[in-house]
């Protein structure tokens, strides 16, 4: 996953990070798989509202076996499934950085 945009562009923060769901507990992994499936099944995001600025967009490349799915979720995307996935990924990232 890779996040870019925001009120400033920081080259160091735009680098991709990898989250391996295989390192999670079985329960957490199942929960993440459900969130990913729901987000992929959600209707496509409309373009950002005209005039919106400085929002961040997280680009996800989801690899599962041989399958690769692409997903982009911005701060101004209000779809509940994508928001739930983004919130959960944020929690995972914070947990990883605390370790």
């Amino acid at each position: 996953m890779r996040t870019e945009g925001g009120v400033a562009f920081f080259p160091g923060l735009a680098r991709p990070t990898v989250i391996d769901l295989g390192t999670l507990s079985p329960a957490d992994e199942a929960r993440m798989r459900d969130l990913v499936a729901a987000a992929l099944a959600a209707p496509p995001a409309p373009p950002p509202p005209k005039g919106a600025a400085d929002y961040r967009t997280t680009f996800l490349s989801i690899e599962d076996g041989g399958d690769v799915h692409q997903l982009a979720i911005s701060d101004v995307d209000t779809d509940p499934s994508r928001r739930a996935l983004l919130d959960a990924l944020g929690e995972l990232r914070r947990a990883m950085s605390r370790r």
Binding site: P48, P49, A53, D54, Y55
Partner: peptide
């Protein structure tokens, strides 16, 4: 807004 959120933005109607 959010946890540890390192940003501010304008969503076309309000500031965050």
């Amino acid at each position: 807004y959010d946890q540890d959120y390192n940003n501010a933005f304008w969503n076309s109607q309000q500031m965050v």
